[in-house]
Design a binder for these strands. Structure first.
Lengths: 175, 175
DNA sequence: CACCAGAAATGAACAGCGTTCAATTAAAAT
DNA sequence: ATTTTAATTGAACGCTGTTCATTTCTGGTG
């Protein structure tokens, strides 16, 4: 996946490369969706691990570490990162609970830092703000990876995202 | 496309429905990429038209009209909207100039409103801020359509996006 | 009308895809 | 050695994008 990207990714090619038949792959993963889910779950877990590592090594500016960690992982694993968002269940339904738990874990990493920045806010407020901030960073990161930004002359999407996050946190601290 | 979504969309099915053979479709559009580009170009043009309509009918709060127009179009044409972002050229290269011009036009609609909000800012600053604001709104809109938000309990993504945009514009006005 | 050049349209053929499943092979238990 | 269970296989099906020699249509000329 990291090599070919979602569009050229295929279960048959995976079977070839691991030295098993396509039938065995289907016995294990059940379907293409199952294979993709396993793969994306791994990517999500690696992403969360990367963020926690960055936070553990961070100094005072933990928000910067978080936002930069977000961008770093996407930049270092662009095709796997994009696959997370571009794969959709064949039936259009939601992903299984175990997968959603990984996404929720990733969100909780961010929520922890937002809560630290806004110690006087209600947990409900912190969660709502976290969702919005993650969406903000995601938008910048997506435009960076889809080359929408480079097409428009943007050169430092991570800096812009961090500035937006800082503004929002500052506004939330005001009376 | 509006009916099936990108994943189930196929040139062969298009040929069937319009009553032409698959060969004729390829004579006209050259490739699957060509067909997709024509389709996405139409979606971009309709989107820009929708935004201009909303702005023309807007009262004082033109920023709200812009952000809401962004979300409305995506919500009313979810599969076509997603196709804009999820289709990638077969060779991974950039889209043709004529297509990029449509994306630039869409951005210029937003830039016009940002410039109106920040009359004392240099054009360069306005453009950079517009890119970042569009990325912010896009992130919220993408999470709304990908059901990432509903999975996390968010109920009013457009309101959150508008709040983020207002904060940034306010911060840009400060000394 | 017949003729013909150019444009338009065709669909079989090819390689690849996800998916299924009866048949086969390998491993474990008796 | 025999039986039972687990693991593995790959041909077959219908779908995909793509190509291109062939056919059909169309408008103009003599």
């Amino acid at each position: 996946m990291a090599e070919t990207g979602l569009a050229r990714f295929s279960a048959r090619e995976v079977a070839k490369r691991i030295g098993y038949s396509i039938g065995t792959l289907y016995n294990v993963f059940g379907s293409y969706d199952g294979l993709m889910l396993a793969l994306n779950a791994r990517t999500l877990a690696l992403w969360a691990e990367h963020l926690r590592d960055r936070l553990a090594a961070a100094g005072e500016d933990r928000i910067k570490a978080l936002v930069c960690g977000y961008f770093e992982f996407a930049r270092d694993n662009p095709k796997a990162w994009i696959a997370i968002y571009e794969h959709h269940m064949a039936d259009g339904g939601p992903a299984p609970e175990s997968y959603q738990a990984l996404a929720a874990d990733l969100m909780s990493v961010a929520a922890g830092e937002v809560a630290r920045e806004l110690p006087d806010s209600r947990p409900e407020t912190v969660l709502a703000l976290t969702r919005s901030l993650v969406a903000t960073v995601h938008g910048h990161c997506a435009f960076a990876l889809y080359r929408t930004f480079s097409m428009l002359g943007e050169t430092a999407p991570a800096d812009a995202a961090l500035a937006r996050v800082r503004e929002t946190l500052e506004a939330a601290r005001r009376p």
